Deep mutational scan, measured.
Amino acid sequence: MPVRRGHVAPQNTFLDTIIRKFEGQSRKFIIANARVENCAVIYCNDGFCELCGYSRAEVMQRPCTCDFLHGPRTQRRAAAQIAQALLGAEERKVEIAFYRKDGSCFLCLVDVVPVKNEDGAVIMFILNFEVVMEKDMVGSPAHDTNHRGPPTSWLAPGRAKTFRLKLPALLALTARESSVRSGGAGGAGAPGAVVVDVDLTPAAPSSESLALDEVTAMDNHVAGLGPAEERRALVGPGSPPRSAPGQLPSPRAHSLNPDASGSSCSLARTRSRESCASVRRASSADDIEAMRAGVLPPPPRHASTGAMHPLRSGLLNSTSDSDLVRYRTISKIPQITLNFVDLKGDPFLASPTSDREIIAPKIKERTHNVTEKVTQVLSLGADVLPEYKLQAPRIHRWTILHYSPFKAVWDWLILLLVIYTAVFTPYSAAFLLKETEEGPPATECGYACQPLAVVDLIVDIMFIVDILINFRTTYVNANEEVVSHPGRIAVHYFKGWFLIDMVAAIPFDLLI
């Protein structure tokens, strides 16, 4: 008679799926529990143990900040960024110097990925580790590398530091407007667009060049630039800015003055950032001319202004700041037409079709709590990747769950009947059967004279019903998954307890 339990259901295979997918890609990662103190490590794979030199037993239950890997060259700011990422709910990448158990130093890129439950609360953290440099290539500990984003994938490793954006290309926007319009339909740009040429040739750093990471940081200074100062900065030398009595002219307006920039070969870094931020506020060169004239017309309804409409929906549905990093990277690809469009465009503009998908598509409701890094690593669709929660398995109709209350009560009843059979069957065979043979035949009273025979008949009927119930009862397979398919249940029961239950259900007393 089957006594099969499996009270692990309803099970959740999400954690096993993450481990299996990460292991298949030869990654070095740990999984931490966000619900406990210090976000203790609950799993670390073999790749991480080989990377740091510690065994799994030495890593388990330690804080996922990996303070046991810190050393003299470990930056405090990087460690603080990892700790801050564990307090938030967004994906974050941090470069930090770690030390192995043998004392060797290596520069590592740590990717902190939160995993949320159905309520939107962070319950786990996945920390992925990628070695960037070994100890002989690690720089000085005073050099802070965590304020910069990861290198873009479309640049060669040897040319990542030679990417320079020439400031004269930004200063000569109005001069290039006529050349853009003359391109017409034969050019790649839309009317009114501004073409910015980027020099990728390796050259020595000069005062006129600005690194790509500095251009990325310009967006942080746009908020500090007032509207009046932006307007004066875009007017140009024809209309000098008016300053109040006793007030000095704005240095932001002076930063885009061609006369002032041409007199000296070098520009201050602050002026460069502010000038680029001011130019980015204009949607095209037409807006710059309109600002000089004193009238700013409404933005025209053409394809170039609607190019950012799908980007707005993608940004609203993005799951991490990696989408913004990807957008900034692609927006700086050289030799393309940049349409400086305000994100607050007309909502009635139709979304044009684009061959290049900048932001990841909208994630469906079932995966809105899973970050983009987890979705990318697992390579699963929205119909396959579940949320991290207890999910009731989908069972067929008329199927009994093996952990249901009805099955528990039924098993206790069958257990009592088995005990009765084990006690009274030998007793009936030894004593009652002998008395029946010696006594007179009682054929007239039937079952009324033999109450134990009636009980034995009921017990046999219950055993037959138990066999039928076992054909529709779920079970737990070797992978700790609840199986509810009727065919698989029948095959599993035939290979197991079916023969024993059938022999126990045969009414031998009635056959004798």
Rank of each mutant, 00 (worst) to 15 (best):
residue 2 P to Y: 15
residue 4 R to W: 12
residue 4 R to V: 09
residue 5 R to A: 09
residue 5 R to I: 08
residue 7 H to G: 07
residue 8 V to K: 10
residue 9 A to N: 09
residue 13 T to Q: 12
residue 16 D to I: 11
residue 18 I to L: 14
residue 18 I to M: 12
residue 20 R to I: 01
residue 20 R to S: 09
residue 22 F to M: 10
residue 23 E to S: 11
residue 24 G to E: 07
residue 27 R to T: 13
residue 27 R to F: 09
residue 28 K to Q: 07
residue 29 F to C: 01
residue 29 F to R: 01
residue 29 F to P: 01
residue 29 F to E: 01
residue 30 I to E: 01
residue 33 N to D: 06
residue 33 N to Q: 07
residue 34 A to D: 01
residue 39 C to P: 13
residue 40 A to W: 05
residue 41 V to P: 01
residue 44 C to H: 01
residue 44 C to N: 01
residue 45 N to G: 03
residue 47 G to N: 12
residue 49 C to L: 14
residue 50 E to G: 09
residue 50 E to W: 01
residue 52 C to A: 13
residue 52 C to W: 15
residue 52 C to L: 06
residue 53 G to Q: 06
residue 53 G to N: 01
residue 54 Y to P: 01
residue 54 Y to L: 01
residue 56 R to G: 01
residue 56 R to N: 01
residue 58 E to V: 04
residue 58 E to W: 09
residue 59 V to L: 10
residue 59 V to T: 01
residue 63 P to T: 13
residue 64 C to T: 06
residue 66 C to Q: 01
residue 66 C to F: 07
residue 69 L to T: 01
residue 69 L to M: 13
residue 70 H to I: 05
residue 72 P to K: 06
residue 74 T to R: 01
residue 75 Q to E: 15
residue 77 R to K: 07
residue 80 A to V: 13
residue 81 Q to L: 09
residue 82 I to Y: 05
residue 82 I to N: 04
residue 83 A to P: 15
residue 83 A to I: 07
residue 84 Q to I: 05
residue 85 A to S: 11
residue 86 L to D: 01
residue 86 L to Y: 01
residue 86 L to N: 01
residue 89 A to P: 08
residue 91 E to S: 07
residue 92 R to Y: 05
residue 92 R to E: 15
residue 93 K to L: 14
residue 93 K to N: 13
residue 94 V to A: 06
residue 98 F to P: 01
residue 101 K to W: 01
residue 101 K to G: 01
residue 103 G to F: 06
residue 104 S to A: 07
residue 104 S to C: 12
residue 106 F to D: 01
residue 106 F to N: 01
residue 107 L to R: 14
residue 108 C to A: 11
residue 110 V to D: 01
residue 110 V to N: 01
residue 111 D to E: 01
residue 111 D to M: 05
residue 111 D to F: 05
residue 111 D to G: 08
residue 112 V to H: 01
residue 113 V to W: 15
residue 116 K to E: 06
residue 118 E to M: 11
residue 121 A to C: 10
residue 122 V to W: 01
residue 123 I to D: 14
residue 124 M to Y: 10
residue 124 M to Q: 03
residue 124 M to W: 13
residue 126 I to K: 01
residue 127 L to A: 01
residue 129 F to C: 01
residue 130 E to Y: 05
residue 130 E to D: 08
residue 131 V to F: 06
residue 134 E to A: 08
residue 135 K to L: 12
residue 136 D to P: 14
residue 136 D to R: 12
residue 140 S to E: 14
residue 140 S to M: 15
residue 141 P to D: 15
residue 145 T to I: 06
residue 145 T to D: 15
residue 146 N to G: 08
residue 149 G to P: 09
residue 149 G to Y: 06
residue 150 P to W: 06
residue 154 W to N: 11
residue 155 L to W: 15
residue 157 P to N: 07
residue 157 P to R: 14
residue 158 G to A: 14
residue 164 R to A: 14
residue 166 K to P: 05
residue 167 L to G: 09
residue 167 L to E: 15
residue 168 P to Q: 10
residue 168 P to R: 08
residue 170 L to V: 05
residue 170 L to Y: 08
residue 170 L to M: 11
residue 173 L to K: 15
residue 174 T to A: 14
residue 174 T to Y: 06
residue 175 A to N: 15
residue 175 A to D: 07
residue 176 R to L: 06
residue 176 R to M: 06
residue 177 E to I: 01
residue 179 S to A: 13
residue 179 S to R: 11
residue 180 V to S: 08
residue 181 R to P: 13
residue 181 R to Y: 06
residue 181 R to Q: 07
residue 183 G to R: 08
residue 183 G to I: 14
residue 183 G to F: 06
residue 184 G to L: 07
residue 185 A to S: 12
residue 185 A to K: 09
residue 188 A to Q: 11
residue 189 G to N: 15
residue 190 A to E: 01
residue 192 G to V: 03
residue 192 G to T: 08
residue 193 A to R: 03
residue 193 A to K: 05
residue 194 V to K: 01
residue 194 V to L: 01
residue 195 V to N: 01
residue 196 V to Y: 04
residue 197 D to A: 01
residue 198 V to G: 01
residue 202 P to S: 05
residue 203 A to H: 15
residue 203 A to E: 15
residue 203 A to L: 06
residue 204 A to D: 05
residue 204 A to E: 03
residue 209 S to D: 10
residue 211 A to E: 08
residue 212 L to I: 14
residue 212 L to T: 14
residue 213 D to F: 05
residue 213 D to V: 05
residue 213 D to A: 13
residue 214 E to N: 13
residue 214 E to I: 05
residue 215 V to N: 10
residue 215 V to D: 15
residue 216 T to I: 10
residue 217 A to M: 05
residue 219 D to K: 15
residue 220 N to W: 06
residue 220 N to S: 05
residue 221 H to S: 15
residue 221 H to D: 05
residue 223 A to I: 13
residue 224 G to P: 06
residue 225 L to D: 10
residue 226 G to S: 06
residue 226 G to Q: 06
residue 228 A to L: 14
residue 228 A to D: 06
residue 228 A to K: 11
residue 230 E to L: 05
residue 236 G to Q: 01
residue 237 P to R: 08
residue 239 S to H: 06
residue 239 S to Y: 07
residue 241 P to I: 12
residue 242 R to F: 14
residue 243 S to P: 06
residue 244 A to F: 01
residue 245 P to G: 11
residue 246 G to H: 15
residue 247 Q to M: 07
residue 247 Q to W: 14
residue 248 L to P: 08
residue 248 L to A: 05
residue 249 P to Q: 09
residue 251 P to E: 10
residue 252 R to P: 05
residue 252 R to M: 07
residue 253 A to Y: 10
residue 254 H to D: 12
residue 255 S to E: 13
residue 255 S to F: 06
residue 257 N to S: 11
residue 259 D to S: 08
residue 259 D to R: 06
residue 260 A to G: 12
residue 260 A to L: 12
residue 263 S to F: 08
residue 264 S to K: 08
residue 264 S to M: 12
residue 266 S to L: 11
residue 266 S to M: 14
residue 268 A to Y: 12
residue 270 T to M: 07
residue 270 T to E: 13
residue 270 T to Q: 07
residue 270 T to S: 11
residue 271 R to H: 15
residue 271 R to V: 05
residue 273 R to W: 13
residue 274 E to P: 07
residue 275 S to Q: 09
residue 276 C to P: 11
residue 277 A to L: 07
residue 278 S to H: 15
residue 279 V to Q: 09
residue 280 R to S: 15
residue 283 S to G: 09
residue 284 S to N: 07
residue 285 A to G: 07
residue 285 A to D: 14
residue 286 D to L: 09
residue 287 D to Y: 05
residue 289 E to G: 04
residue 289 E to R: 08
residue 289 E to K: 02
residue 292 R to C: 05
residue 292 R to L: 11
residue 294 G to D: 11
residue 294 G to W: 04
residue 295 V to I: 14
residue 296 L to Q: 10
residue 297 P to R: 12
residue 297 P to T: 09
residue 298 P to K: 09
residue 299 P to T: 12
residue 299 P to K: 07
residue 299 P to I: 08
residue 302 H to M: 12
residue 305 T to G: 12
residue 305 T to E: 14
residue 306 G to C: 12
residue 310 P to C: 05
residue 311 L to A: 12
residue 312 R to S: 08
residue 315 L to I: 15
residue 316 L to R: 05
residue 316 L to Q: 14
residue 317 N to M: 12
residue 319 T to L: 05
residue 321 D to S: 14
residue 322 S to M: 07
residue 323 D to N: 13
residue 325 V to F: 11
residue 325 V to N: 09
residue 326 R to C: 05
residue 326 R to V: 11
residue 328 R to P: 12
residue 330 I to P: 14
residue 331 S to V: 01
residue 332 K to C: 04
residue 333 I to V: 14
residue 333 I to T: 14
residue 334 P to A: 03
residue 337 T to A: 15
residue 337 T to P: 05
residue 337 T to W: 14
residue 339 N to E: 07
residue 339 N to K: 12
residue 339 N to F: 01
residue 341 V to L: 06
residue 346 D to G: 11
residue 346 D to E: 14
residue 348 F to V: 11
residue 349 L to Y: 07
residue 351 S to F: 04
residue 352 P to L: 13
residue 353 T to N: 14
residue 353 T to H: 07
residue 355 D to K: 14
residue 355 D to C: 15
residue 355 D to T: 14
residue 356 R to Y: 08
residue 356 R to S: 11
residue 360 A to R: 11
residue 369 N to C: 12
residue 371 T to S: 06
residue 373 K to C: 07
residue 374 V to K: 03
residue 374 V to Q: 01
residue 374 V to F: 11
residue 375 T to C: 11
residue 375 T to E: 06
residue 375 T to M: 04
residue 377 V to M: 09
residue 377 V to W: 04
residue 377 V to L: 14
residue 378 L to M: 09
residue 380 L to F: 07
residue 380 L to M: 07
residue 382 A to F: 05
residue 382 A to W: 15
residue 385 L to S: 09
residue 386 P to E: 04
